[in-house]
Design a protein around this nucleic acid. Sequence first.
RNA 1: GUGGCUAUAGCUCAAAGGUAGAGCGCUUGAUUGUGGCUCAAGAGGUUGUGGGUUCGAGCCCCACUAGCCACCCCA
Length: 443
Amino acid sequence: MLTSESGFPEWLPADRLVEQAFIDTIRQQFELYGFAPLETRAVEPVDVLLAKGETDKEIYVLSRLQADEDEPDEASLGLHFDLTVPFARFVTENQGRLTFPIRRYQIQKAWRGERPQAGRFREFYQADIDIIERGDLPITADLELIQALHDVVNALPVPRVRIHLNNRKLLEGFYRALGIEDIQETLRIADKLDKVGADGVRAMLIESGLGEAAADACLALSTIQSGDAATIRERVAALGQTHDLLDEGLAELAFVLEGVRTAHPDDIIADLSIARGLDYYTGTVVEGKFADIPDFPTVCSGGRYDNLAAGKGDEKLPGMGVSIGITRILSKVLAEGHLRASRRTPSCVLVALVDEETRQQSSAVAYALRQRGIPCEVYNTPDRFGKQIRYADRMGIPFVWFPGTDGADEVKDIRSGDQSPADPASWEPPAEDWHVRIEEVEP
RNA sequence: GUGGCUAUAGCUCAAAGGUAGAGCGCUUGAUUGUGGCUCAAGAGGUUGUGGGUUCGAGCCCCACUAGCCACCCCA
C-alpha cells in the first residue's frame, strides 16, 4: 500500500487486482442471496448524517474554494461515513417507487476524518447488505443477514472470521432492570471489555455513576460468552434481573444464534460484551473478527435499526443490515503477505514487436487473441527480445508471442521456457492462466 | 482532537560534530532479436522544510510539515 496521504490508501496495480477480485466475489455472493445493487451519491446533508446522534463522528464537510463569503453557508453537505444512513435516507425519499421488502447491496467508499491507524483509514471501501421492510421486519431477517455475512466472508481467501452476536434489547432491558438511566453511556463502556479489561470497565462504570453492585452486575453480564443458547439463558437468568425488554432481547439472540449455528457451529458465538458504537442499533448487533488475530479491529459488523428510515405518518420502516470492511481486510491480508495476484496485469500474452515494419502483424495477432477473449498486449518498441521477455517476466505475463514470417508464429511459456508453433486463430492458454488468479501464499 | 516516537537513494537501513554509504531494485554490457543465474560497469542525495548553535551539522537546539503508534472512535 502507498500512503502518500495518510489514511487515503492507494494500491499498486497488483494489489488493486486483489481488491477487485474481493469486490467481485462479494458482489457475486450478495447477488446469490438476491440483493439488488444500489449506489447512492457520496454526499448527504450534514443534518441527515448527524440525525442519529452521531455528533462526534468525524465527518468531512464539503465546501467550494470559490464560494463567496456572503453566500449562504452551503456547508450543509458532508461525505457519508457509512452506507446505512444514506440507504435509509434513500428509502425514506423513494418509498413510493420501491417494492418492500427492499433487499439491496451497496459496495462503495465511505469517509471518516479519524486519525488513521493500522487497519483504520479515512477513505475506505465498505460492502453492505440490508433489508428494510414496511411495518414490521421479522427476526428471521436478522438470521438471514447473519448467515449471508458468514457465507460472504468465508467465500473470501482470508483468515477465519468469528462472528460475535448480541442484542441491544437484552442489554438495555438488563440495565433498566438495574435502574440505570444513561443507557448509551453504559453501552459505550461495556463495549470496551476486550480493550480495557474487566477491572477497567468496572472502574469506568462506577465513575459514570453506577453503584458497585450495579457495576458488578453489568460486568457479569458482559462477560457472558457461549455458543449455546441454553447456556446463555441460564447464565443471564442467574444474574437475577427481570425486564420485558431483557426477555425479548434474549429470545431474539437465542433464535438467531441457534439458526446460524445449525450450519456453522464453530464460527459464531453469543458475546454479551458486544454493544456497538453506532447508536442507531435497536436489537441484534454483530461484529466479526479474525479468529486468530485478536488485536486486529472488527472486519465486519452490523445490526438491527428499527427507527433509521421513516415511513409516512406513523408507519415504521425497520431495517437490518451488515457491512464488510473491504479496505481493512485487504490491508491486513496484503501486509501479512497472505495473498497476491498471480500477475501484475490482466495480460495473459505479450505479443513481441519484431520491428516497425511488422507492427501491423503483431497487432493482428493481438486482435485475433482478443477476439477469443484472451487478454494481451503488444510490446511498445522493437527492443531486442531479451528485453521484451524480461518485461513479461516482471509483469508476470506467462506467455510471449513471437510473430514469424508466413504465419510461422511461435509462443513461449516463459515459466517453463517451452516454445512451440502457434496459430493466433486457435491457440489458447491453459484455463488457469487465462485470467489473473488470487493466490494464497504459504508462509 | 490529545499524548509519545520518527523523518538519510525508488525500498530497507548504516554513518557516535570532521569528505554521505551498504543491500535490494533500476540502467548498460558480457549475450549478435530469447529473460531468469553469474560477472562487470553505471545512474540515482540541496540528509522532510525553515531557522539557530558551532571553525565545521545528516548528527545538537527551536519551529513547521508529514508519517507511525496509543487514546477517542470504528469497517
